[in-house]
Amino acid sequence: MSQLADLAPAPVPAGRRTPWRRTPWRRTVRSIRFLVPAAMLALLVVIALFPSLFAGLFGNGDPRVCDLRMSGDAPAPGHPFGYDLQGCDVYANVIYGTQSSLAVGVFTTMLATVAAVVLGTIAGYRGGAADWIISRLTDVFLGFPFLLGAIVVLTSIGQRSVLTVSLVLSLFGWPLMARLVRGSVRSVRNADYVRAARTMGIGTGRIISHHVLPNALAPVLVIATITTGSVIVAESSLTYLGIGLEAPAISWGLQLASASSQFLSSPHLLVFPSLFLAVTVLSIISLGDTLRSTLDPRRQQ
């Protein structure tokens, strides 16, 4: 979410003449719409960093201790989320899966968003040949079947880690957002306040950073936060095909993929990883939404 920092308007003037208003940050930080998703995300990050602290809460903290006799069994004391197909503890697996899933989701979204903002802004602001080249490039990527492309790239890379999977996912994720950025920048580029800035002799860099991007990025941010969730799921489909994270790795995607076939007999296999995924995505989306309205003076009372 580092791109959020660029979104802030000119720094809120400090001290002197602002005793009576303009403290959007402080008010936001105190609001429930910020606190709840932020706390959830913080918890997930702590889980991702130190899974062992949480996995052992119910006495069966090792995700690789499995008992095939218990395959697919329902929740039982000591195993609150039940057993998976291999007879391993689902709770421990979900906890340990947080790390790679969250990493893939956030890392991919960041990469794709940064690429999309840079290329989309160039295309939208410069226009002409730059626009043509970048637009055709996005067309090519959008037209390319995602799974086929992913198979080709991941097989040729050979090595499959969180990093490479994120790279491949963002390779196919940026074009859609770049299109969005391009359209958004184009509409803002011709706004009167941008023309006014140009007539004041303000440099292109400052125009883009202060006038164009702050007003153009709102829709991109919404898509970016939603993308995080779909990326986590996309990782699972790659893994399901055997080209995502490799077998010893644990991720929600892997768990969802293996649970989908057993959904009717053992619904808990699907429910618990999905629950974590849903909470993660919801937290990111609502946090993004809160930040967006904080940064937009028109949405403050």
Binding site: P9, A10, Y193, T199, M200, G201, P214
Partner: peptide, 26 residues
């Protein structure tokens, strides 16, 4: 850019000619 500093422009519609994210002061 230097030449443009010598020229001020006032546009027709003040609603669109002011950046919505800039305060009056900014």
């Amino acid at each position: 850019r230097e030449l443009r500093q010598r020229v001020g422009v006032v546009f027709q519609n003040p609603t669109t000619s002011l950046n919505p994210r800039f305060s009056v002061r900014d």
